[in-house]
């Protein structure tokens, strides 16, 4: 399989995982969407040089993945797949910010390196939280959750279509890449100009297909509102889940938990 095919396949696999039936899967989508949002806000709002205080946040995805019977290896591979993007975002920090911020023994570590690591941690935490959300809720479940939380129909529909469009785009790209590979030899037919033409053609093809897909939705009674077969019931379990985790996130955001723990432990020892 090509990289692209693998990526698409894994995206589909996330949705398959959502068919599992575990306590986490049975939670109302809204509970998971809100909790994930609180999580994201807390993680993203940490300071530029914060690393340690963010670490406890790994608790949430790990607990959910365990309770939701999600394969950790699969999630880890997805994290590695996004790593290059995270590195790309933060890679210039060490060069730009050379002021020494802390010392590890005799080694002075610059603010640039600290903020680089901070970006990596942030990237991983937010990505894994999003993956866990989809793998326990399904993409359409997330969409319906958003809808019920007051996000306008138009946006939710766009989101759902965008998701389908990713597959369409991927499939068409693969087809055209194969077609081109079959008919180009040595380096002929592989130049930049050809890429330009392929791109234009790709847009036309995917545009036409997206139009037909939309017609198919209309044919089956689509009137702008996304409805899916998933009984939504917000029970006390959902309330407990949402409020419990959110409270914990806020505590972990406000207090530097590793630091407090460290002090507590050293206090015990001395």
């Amino acid at each position: 399989m090509s990289k692209l095919e693998e990526g698409l396949y894994d995206l589909g696999r996330l949705d398959r995982l959502a068919f599992l039936d575990t306590p986490v899967h049975r939670l109302d989508p809204r509970a998971k969407v809100v909790t994930t949002l609180v999580y994201l806000v807390c993680v993203v709002s940490f300071g530029k040089y914060d690393v340690l205080p963010m670490l406890p946040f790994v608790l949430y995805p790990v607990v959910l993945a365990a309770d939701g019977a999600l394969p950790l290896g699969f999630l880890a591979r997805k994290l590695i797949a996004v790593a290059p993007f995270a590195v790309l975002v933060g890679i210039f920090n060490p060069a730009l910010d050379r002021e020494v911020l802390l010392h590890l023994g005799s080694l002075g570590i610059s603010g640039g390196w600290v903020s680089f690591v901070s970006i990596l941690v942030r990237f991983f935490l937010t990505t894994i939280a999003a993956l866990v959300l989809i793998a326990t809720t399904s993409f359409s479940g997330v969409c319906v959750g958003l809808r019920r939380l007051g996000v306008p129909d138009v946006m939710v529909t766009q989101l759902l279509l965008l998701y389908r469009y990713i597959f369409v785009l991927g499939e068409e790209t693969m087809r055209m890449a194969r077609a081109r590979a079959l008919r180009s030899f040595d380096d002929r037919g592989m130049g930049l100009a050809v890429y330009g033409q392929i791109l234009g053609h790709l847009l036309l093809r995917t545009y036409a297909r997206a139009g037909r897909l939309y017609q198919a939705m209309l044919a089956r009674g689509f009137d702008g509102e996304v409805r899916i077969v998933r009984a939504l019931r917000f029970t006390w379990r959902d309330v407990a889940f949402t409020s419990g985790w959110s409270a914990l996130f806020v505590v972990m955001r406000v207090y530097n938990v590793p630091l407090l723990l460290g002090r507590f432990m050293t206090g015990l020892i001395s």
Partner: peptide, 23 residues
């Protein structure tokens, strides 16, 4: 449709088939 790829738009077969009845 002639091309089923034009017709299936939900993330899973079940959701796709249930889409019409829900609407």
């Amino acid at each position: 449709f002639q091309d089923p790829d034009d017709q299936l738009f939900m993330p899973s077969v079940f959701e796709d088939v249930a889409f019409g009845p829900m609407n």
